[in-house]
């Protein structure tokens, strides 16, 4: 059996009295895209920093390429941090040249989309291009593992799709990918998900496993504002998409009670990942 590229067992990280990551376990295998989901402050970045060896865990065990995180292990991975980790005062070509030299790899070609910006300083090009460059720099040395911390944050949909094409191409070539995101569309592109809330892994598995335990009812009524207010007042988890009201993890009887005499048609619908996440967050909190 192939050893996982990342293996975290019962990893905890405390900062004083505050527990940022609490007893989290996960694995990432070759060719697998594992998504780490959660709101801001859920502990995703802290977990990634521990996996990279930038932050020691308070408890638990971590293995990167079947060994404690180390310089040797880090040489085999590509990392795109939230802040991108690019040198703003260097040009596109100079950034790639520096990373190539640091990893001892052959010269990484400037991506076609950046060819026109090759000699421009990175601080002067747009965020979408900066992200493309960060991906190129992370992939230049042929890593076996990609660690991406919110890699498409602030990028337009087209650029986001292109970056995900790159992620899929890498995974198809056998590269393991650990990616944090709070975009639901991106989560749907992962093979496996770990949902984190307040430092705890509240759910894990494939998309269907995470959404599976959640139910949703579409509440069809012309008086959607009144329906929303009534459900919210009754403590029902209620979501709004345009003028469509959806009650999450609440049975038909409870919804009817909450609506009182308000005329509405209830229809069971498939919950979205976002609804499942919010429901998990609420039950964890």
């Amino acid at each position: 059996m192939t050893e996982p590229l990342i293996r975290a067992s019962g990893v905890t990280r405390r900062f004083g009295d505050f527990t940022a990551v609490d007893d989290v376990s996960l694995t990432v295998g070759p060719g697998e895209i594992v998504g780490l989901l959660g709101a801001n402050g859920a502990g995703k970045t802290t977990l990634i920093r521990m996996i990279l060896g930038l932050l020691p865990p308070t408890e638990g065990e971590l293995a990167l390429f079947d060994a404690p995180p180390s310089r040797e292990g880090r040489a085999r991975l590509g990392y795109v941090p939230q802040g991108l980790g690019l040198w703003d005062d260097l040009t596109v070509a100079e950034n790639l040249a520096f990373v190539d030299e640091a990893f001892g790899s052959r010269a990484t070609a400037v991506p076609d989309a950046l060819a026109g910006s090759r000699d421009r300083v990175v601080g002067g090009i747009g965020l979408g291009r900066q992200r493309q460059l960060a991906f190129a720099a992370a992939l230049g040395h042929g890593p076996e593992l990609l660690v991406l911390d919110e890699p498409t944050s602030g990028v337009d949909p087209l650029s986001r799709a292109r970056l995900w094409d790159t992620v899929h191409d890498s995974a198809d070539a056998g590269v393991g990918v650990l990616v944090t995101t709070h975009y639901m569309q991106e989560a749907e592109q992962c093979d496996r998900l770990v949902l984190m809330s307040q430092g705890v892994a509240v759910a894990s598995g494939q998309l269907a496993d995470i959404v599976g335990g959640t139910t949703a009812l579409a509440v069809r009524t012309d008086r959607w504002q009144d329906a929303f207010a009534a459900l919210d007042d009754a403590g029902v988890l209620v979501m709004l998409a345009g003028t469509h009201v959806r009650a999450v993890d609440a049975g038909e009887d409870r919804v009817r009670d909450a609506l009182g005499g308000l005329a509405a048609r209830l229809e069971p619908v498939t919950p979205t990942l976002e609804e499942a996440m919010v429901a998990r967050e609420r039950s964890a909190g």
Binding site: R71, P81, G83
Partner: peptide, 14 residues
Amino acid sequence: QTGTLEQLAVMPLR
């Protein structure tokens, strides 16, 4: 401040 110190730490540089 720009986060590149973390990137240096992740690179296989001593």
